[in-house]
Design a protein around this nucleic acid. Sequence first.
RNA 1: GGGCUCGUAGAUCAGCGGUAGAUCGCUUCCUUCGCAAGGAAGAGGCCCUGGGUUCGAAUCCCAGCGAGUCCA
Length: 926
Amino acid sequence: MSDLEDEYRLDYFDEEGFVRTACSSCGDHFWTRDERRETCGEPPCASYEFVGSPGFDESYTLSEMREAFLSFFEERDHERIDPYPVAANRWRDDVLLTQASVYDFQPHVTSGQAPPPANPLTVSQPCIRMQDIDNVGKTGRHTMAFEMMAHHAFNAREEAEGYAYEGEVYWKDETVAYCDELLREMGADPEKVTYIEDPWVGGGNAGPAIEVIYEGLELATLVFMSMERDEDGDYLLKDGNRYSKMDTYVVDTGYGLERWTWMAQGTPTVYEAVYPETIDFLKQHAGVDYTDEEDRLVAEAATMAGGLDVDDVDDVEAARGEIAAELGVDVERLRDLVEPLESIYAVADHCRTLAYMLGDGIVPSNVKTGYLARMVLRRTKRLVDDAGVDVPLDELVDMQAERLGYENRDTIREIVRAEEEQYRETLERGSRRVESLAAEYADRGDPLPTGRLVELYDSHGIQPETVREIAAREGASVEVPDDFYALVADRHGGDDGGETAAETDDRAAEVADLPETDLLFYDDPTGTAFEAVVLDCFEREDGYDVVLDQTLFYPEGGGQPADTGALRTDDDSFAVTDVQSVDGVVLHRTDGNPGSGAIVRGSLDAERRRALMRAHTATHVVGHAAREVLGDHVRQAGAQKGVESSRLDVRHFRRIGRDEIEAIERVANRIVRQNLSVRQSWPDRNEAEAAHGFDIYQGGIPPGEQVRLITVGDDVQACAGTHVERTGDVGLITVLSTEPIQDGVERIAFAAGAAAVAATQRVERTLVDTAETLDVSPPEVPETAQRFFDEWKERGKEIDRLTEELAAARAAGDGGGETVEVGDATVVVRRLDADADELRATANAVVDEGRTAVLGSAAGGSAQVVVGVPDGVPIDAGEAVARLSERLGGGGGGPPDFAQGGGPDADALDDVLADAPGVLRAVHNA
RNA sequence: GGGCUCGUAGAUCAGCGGUAGAUCGCUUCCUUCGCAAGGAAGAGGCCCUGGGUUCGAAUCCCAGCGAGUCCA
């Protein structure tokens, strides 16, 4: 076993006269030109030296610094590439947001499966780190959104084969030399630069890494990704796992653009350096106007905070007293001065984050990336309100979107406004809830229990602070426990089930030695018959999986169902019912075994295949139409093609309206009429991404060096499915329905070709049938239905009125009933086979006449009894009913003046009613 | 993907096994110089849908649909 110490002994350090030193404060090892240097230079071992006196020769703005960095590496043979979106899930499915420049090249490039877009390359990659959200604005140096400037080189060992790049571009010495040279060019004093040894581990990879510190600020991290997790590896690293060297090794650097700009300007916090205009604007609109003396105080406090070990919010709070004492001011005064600024800094950063997120097409929702966007937006809204900024949030976000050069600014504003509105409604709903809850507890003089507080937050999204405010108005006290968020977490139960049911398919092992099946349908998309040799055959519970050397059968994938058909030999015919692809080997599920080595003729169910091809092309057309109608943020969230109908799930921030559906239909059918050609091509992944962006990955992210593109007019998508040759072949496209399948995702169901005609006819048939029933012509149906419904309601009311009238008439006449005296009371005992409503109404009418009613009915299969007692009569109706209905095999009860009950034994009703006077006597005065 | 909360009058909600309610809004009348004023009368409900339990379900149980929210 060995550690990584040797990895840091660079020729470059030797040549330049560096020495290796252990920090006298933290013990970390670092490299420096200054032999007398004792500490590593990073806070808390040292403090900021550049605030107030910039560490570089010239003052750079953010964009000037970016340009300086990129052109520095361009001049040194690095190709400059465009940054990727911040929504990393657009090209990889293991993460949500881009958190580092190397994300752009994971997993295919770093693993060596695909070539990088250039080698070496340089990029300034916007990133978002939600982990820092609480620290933003407060620590003076944390931002949620930032640009990671980087240069990357992708190397493969000489002897390694089968990788998408080969040989060594450059490695550690050159990387450190570049960094040194860049710093020197900026005017940094080389004597003050330290390179700290800090091995990096992450995501199953690892390697030596170096932190670059200058004047107390970490300016860059140079990572040498060269190891992977390996139980038998030689290296035991800080995460407790073993690692061994890989065949590929990658230079992964990260230079914080914001930090470099800050260093060049020497402002009190990073925020003033990054967005000076935004902060001025916010201060102005929040009415923050400090005197020179106050400004100086704030600046000094910020500088001091930088020198302390301030890594999160709690540290800031703890340090504030110290700082106030040092500055000789009251801690309260310092807080009053600093807190408004902290909010403003955070707002500036959050708005930039939102601009990135929404600009890159993230639609807020309650899941995944959309949830993160919503969280940031709501937090920002609270901060804006707290700080008293009198500018609408959509305008603040738009300012950043404009600065970042996004073109979908109208949509961004619309989304922000829609989200604000929804948040407002949530808060309003919440306030009402809290108010009534608080009033309840205030009446009893109790404080609001913690359980309620947790529920209000978890189920209704109301911050505990908000609850406290509202409750105070109602006069209820609220105690927010320190471990509040832990309690919320508890409510979410036993943590991630983590039942990674990685039941690796046995089938993968079976086919491991078989060659990948030659897929004929790409070259011959319209073919329906072919010949092939049976390579192998596996017996299954319900048939056989036949492997051929080549096939026209499309295996299920990309939302397109498998083809069906038959395999024939000279003697036999086998039905193909399902087709799956396992690691490139196509398995044909059949009802018989043709035998290995047999030559078979395959034939597809041609009609089914054609319908699926139409459906697949239609899916692209509908998706394109949806984007045209709803906006560029519309992305595919899933799709399923079918013979009868297909569906496309798209991200959108509100329900799709009837007008929009019709517009989508019009656009889709226009594309059909234009009869555009549908072309396929197999470009390199990088070329495809460069030419068409990541929007080609609507249907998912395929692996491999090359991707298959399907081009329909302006629409380009990576797609493995089968398509018709021209859009005209799709025929009619009709949208069947839309429905929300989750927040931020709408499902569009549609049909194409003959299925579309059939669907239209079905709808028409329904209408015609309905019209026939109503005996009117189809256009009159809505009006007539309305009239019928109104009449139906009117009749219901009429029936209620008549029931009451009838009841009154019965009560007045008491015909057919028996009247008995129980004590002083007159009791009407009567059977009338009516429903419960009528029974009750009649009993009420009898009671209104001052008499007691005992009514029975056997209308609905079971027996019902109702007893009504006028005021002042000492008979307990509930008790009477209980006794009566017991004899009917059931039960019953109610208040003393009016009760009802019954039982299944309808035959006993007459007897029970006959005995009723006796029962009433028994409960009389009881 | 999972947890939790909620679906009752046009709106906001109460009721939580026994005859569907309140407030605002609406209609008509009275009062008033006038009204987000006062008084009187009235209209307005498949209590989300479907099963189950029960003599009886808006109410309890199950499933579905819908809305909201928190977490991965």
